[in-house]
């Protein structure tokens, strides 16, 4: 089985979000970049397939040279090959189309992306890859087993979950639950040393044009100070929630 894991290179979850150049660019100064957490759950699941059934695991990112450290980390966790499409990510369809172009050269049985990236929060790339390639797709995936060419996957939906059977090839949007937090792997020294020798192929982009353009950014308006209520006076809290906030 051949697996492709899509890796988005995102600011660490503790990052302060600021903008520069007239609020048109994200300020990367002092920001640590990581593998998008949802992608890391997916990558870990891919490692299990590799260990159990000898699957090969490629990772891919559409982005500039700055994302290579993130791809190397994925290699250190255990991926076999990394591919970087050498262009800035402009919008979801462009990213999906670049990934599909790479998939034309290597056919994959399973493509794992994250449910959503924590920077753009689009939740779009995996579905678009599936639609462009005519593959089956499942979002919010919290369980996946593969038997031959048939997959059984669990999808979380609002207020519950469903189990779905589908033939391969398949694209999933991974999230926590596919593996647990405690299953995530911190690369060890051996992994890091091996990652240096693994192939990281840079391919040139094929897509032009842009459907969606980010014009500017803004930060939320600062919040007013909290109103503290004495624990001995919970009636006041209820009255504030009823009369002032009008939420109960």
């Amino acid at each position: 089985m051949k697996i492709l894991v899509c890796i988005s290179h995102v600011p660490d979850t503790t990052s302060k979000i600021n903008f520069v150049e007239n609020d048109t660019q994200f300020d990367t100064q002092g920001v640590q970049f990581i593998i998008n957490p949802n992608d890391e759950f997916g990558l870990t699941r891919a490692m299990w397939f590799k260990e159990k059934s000898g699957a090969s695991v490629d990772v891919i990112n559409v982005g500039g040279p700055e994302t290579e450290a993130t791809l190397r980390k994925a290699l250190a966790i255990g991926a076999d090959n990394a591919i970087r499409v050498n262009t800035a990510a402009r919008d979801a369809q462009q990213v999906a189309k670049e990934i599909v172009t790479v998939m034309q050269q290597n056919s994959y049985d399973l493509v794992i992306a994250g449910r959503e990236s924590i920077d753009y929060n689009g939740g779009m790339v995996p579905g678009m890859i599936a639609a462009l390639k005519g593959m089956n797709y499942l979002n919010n995936c919290i369980g996946l087993e593969i038997e031959g060419s048939q997959a059984t996957a669990i999808r979380e939906m609002d207020g519950g979950k469903e189990t779905v059977t589908t033939p391969l090839p398949l694209v999933i949007g991974a999230q926590k639950g596919l593996v647990e937090e405690s299953d995530l792997r911190i690369p060890n020294m051996r992994g890091i040393m091996m990652a240096r020798k693994k192939p990281l192929t840079v391919v040139e982009p094929t897509q032009e044009g842009q459907q969606v353009q980010t014009i500017s950014f803004e930060k939320p308006a600062p919040k007013g100070a909290v109103k503290l209520v004495d624990p001995e006076n919970i009636d006041e809290l209820i009255s504030l929630l009823h009369n002032e906030a009008k939420v109960i």
């Binding site: 600011p11 979000i17 903008f19 924590i118 920077d119 753009y120 929060n121 969606v212 353009q213 980010t214 014009i215 500017s216 950014f217 803004e218 930060k219 939320p220």
Partner: peptide, 10 residues
């Protein structure tokens, strides 16, 4: 964007 830490105009 940025998981509710900011907005963008698209």
């Amino acid at each position: 964007v940025f998981t509710n830490k900011a907005f963008s105009v698209c």
